[in-house]
Design a protein around this nucleic acid. Sequence first.
RNA 1: GGCCCCGUAGCUCAGUGGAGAGAGCAACGGACUUCGAAUCCGUGCGCGGAGGUUCGAUUCCUCCCGGGGCCUCCA
Length: 513
Amino acid sequence: MPGALARLADPIVARAGELGAEGAVEAALARPSIEAHGDFATAIAMRLAPALGRSPREIAEELAEGVPLGGLIESVDVAGPGFLNLHVTPAWYGLALAEVLDRGEAYGSGSAAEPEHIQVELVSANPTGPLTVGSARNGAYGDSVARLLAFAGHRVEREYYYNDAGSQIERFRASVEARRRGEEPPEDGYHGDYITEVAQLDGDPVPTMLEQIEATLRRFRIEIDTWERQSKLERDVPAIIDRLETYEAAGALWIRSTAHGDEKDRVLVRSADRGGLPTYEAADAVYMQRKLAVGFDRLVYVLGADHHSYVAWLGALASALGTDPARVEVLIYQLVHVTEQGEAKKVSKRRGDVVLLDELLDEVGVDAARWFLVARGHDQTVDIDVDLAREKTQKNPVYYVQYGHARIAGILRNAGAAEISPEPPAELAPAERDLVKRLVDFTSVVAEATEHRGPHAIPIYAVRLADDFHRFYQRHRVLDGAAQAFRLALCLATQRLIARCLDLIGVEAPERM
RNA sequence: GGCCCCGUAGCUCAGUGGAGAGAGCAACGGACUUCGAAUCCGUGCGCGGAGGUUCGAUUCCUCCCGGGGCCUCCA
């Protein structure tokens, strides 16, 4: 909790202790939707009522008596079933704004109780073709989670895991070879136009594809720290098998993952009549072992909803490897559906029936694409209508938020070296109060977004922040009068938080638009 | 059949065990001689259905209905 809010809550919590409340008591301060209910409200009296065996109203009355009035708190009311409504003074707004400015870049950061070394594995699309919009959601979501974790104080590394051995890859190579010979790719091969382009170049097409993918990710503002490939891991499959409980059935080697909570046992080595090669899951086992050996406290896997059975599998695998499954976190996001002229497109790389991330970026730009892909909950399916992509772009709220940032930049340019001070005027206008309270919200918003792995809360907050700013701007002239220094401070704090929000989701904060 | 996600305004979506549920888009009507109009202001009885837990449920639990996904010795 920011200091400014703690200053309001602490006396109430202390008073609750005097009344006999035990354990961790929290006076969660919420912002009421109705102005008459004060600047902040808490339902603490209702929560304490059962334990104290008294009526909520009565408790609230006594809590209110413990609230010191005059300095930061103007008045306190008991309302409804036992709400405590606080009205704060201009001095409180000054304190809150000063806190935002004083902490600077660090405002809202460091929410991690115990900083961890975390690996976020993201995208990890097979290099059998360029990245699709499906992978883009993985990237936008996973990268934003990684940014949030880093902001919270964790040490974060991003890894991309790719398959460079296996049937899909062989089909891909065979398809390129066929094109090089001037033939059609095999029926079960890859038929996209990019196959023809890759065929123009010599050598193994897999590294070529990977370079393209990395370039696209950079363009999408995702920096991968390390790359891991399946063929390398497969060498250690025999060693990992020795450590796991396995059995043979139908000629294949299985892991008894159900003993560790999995939904089903899984094949690690295929039967001879299916080639006798290790499966993807066998590589998973080696891979997880390797990640753990690096010393990460936490392993984050970012996977699409089509992989949801991996939640059970990776948890079971962690357990089978003798580590706490709680260290393994699988983040599932719902899939992206692409429609064109009202028709759903099946996102199949093999058929070449895909919308590529690069195409989307050409069409709408990086800022709008990242915003769009991260602005809704990861549990929500995303629809992209290719035909409407550009039109929708014009209405993307990202521009509303960026405009707020640019507008403030303009004001600050005009302000030159004018004094900036959080010292509050005798009276604050409603728009000024709303804006300060919004700034104060940031700390809890970003902490919860991190905790829930829900980066979509950031753009939602950013829109509200920009909204409060635009309204303030409309009603009050900044560069004029006695309140100028305070209003400039308000602008500066707002600009910094908008920039912070945008950075957390990989969007730029322009000085001009 | 089993498992996962979703069902909130005309559309796309936020939201929280608390008071009277929000935003964008679309629609209509207003506001620029003034720091950037990519802006602002006004107009909105909507939490799929039925039970349950609770002082209080849109939120938690159960069931039902509807939509999407997964249940390969694919990756």
